[in-house]
Nucleic acid binder design. Structure first.
Lengths: 99, 99
DNA sequence: CCAATACTTAAGCAGGTGCTTAACCATTCG
DNA sequence: CGAATGGTTAAGCACCTGCTTAAGTATTGG
């Protein structure tokens, strides 16, 4: 899941999709790489749950899955919160010592 | 940066550090891997800015860098917010159509 | 001082990632 | 129909990752 966000090109794709849905062609256009490469990145993003897509006719349209983004965000937020609260308690302790 | 969080063992280490600082030995203890492997993971985490460490005597103590976690969290939050607001506007548009 | 502890470095290796090209399938459009 | 468009599959290759073992170095503790 974070592995999907580990690659810069994939983050660019997520960034593009945050502005709205896009076809595979549109996703590929700003990227300096072949279409099959884009497909592979797209597959990684789909397997991570970050992106969904559906094919109508010959065009595949891709869009973000906000729930997956929320989950990734939450994991970081939880760890940070744990560490920060620990810093706060330490701070309280030091202040107690000081007075 | 997300590459650092891409590995499960490294996420375990971050998780452990969110409960408080730890020595290399302590970080390695719950992990099924050799000490040098832990060192390598630690190096990746330090290069990503997520973790800092300092050596006193023969013991190296590691701790989280909350600013880096915040940055990672923020990137996701921004993308999610962009996409969500777009969904909201679409929703408004459809409601306008409907009435 | 000598051995245990805690880490560190170096080398090497299996497997994974990201990319390419070549060929192919499926859906429009003229 | 037949060519153009949009996507897909397969194979292959260079490089990167995560791990290992073996051999250090640097601090303690007895």
């Amino acid at each position: 899941m974070y592995a999907a966000l580990a690659d810069g090109n994939r983050r660019s794709m997520v960034d593009r999709l945050s502005h709205g849905p896009a076809t595979v062609k549109q996703l590929a256009e700003p990227l300096v790489m072949s279409l099959p490469a884009v497909l592979q990145h797209l597959r990684v993003l789909e397997e991570s749950g970050l992106v969904r897509s559906q094919k109508t006719g010959r065009v595949r349209t891709c869009y973000l899955e906000p729930a997956a983004l929320t989950a990734a965000e939450q994991w970081i937020a939880d760890r940070r919160a744990g560490w920060m609260s620990r810093l706060d308690r330490l701070d309280d302790f030091l202040q107690g010592e000081d007075s």
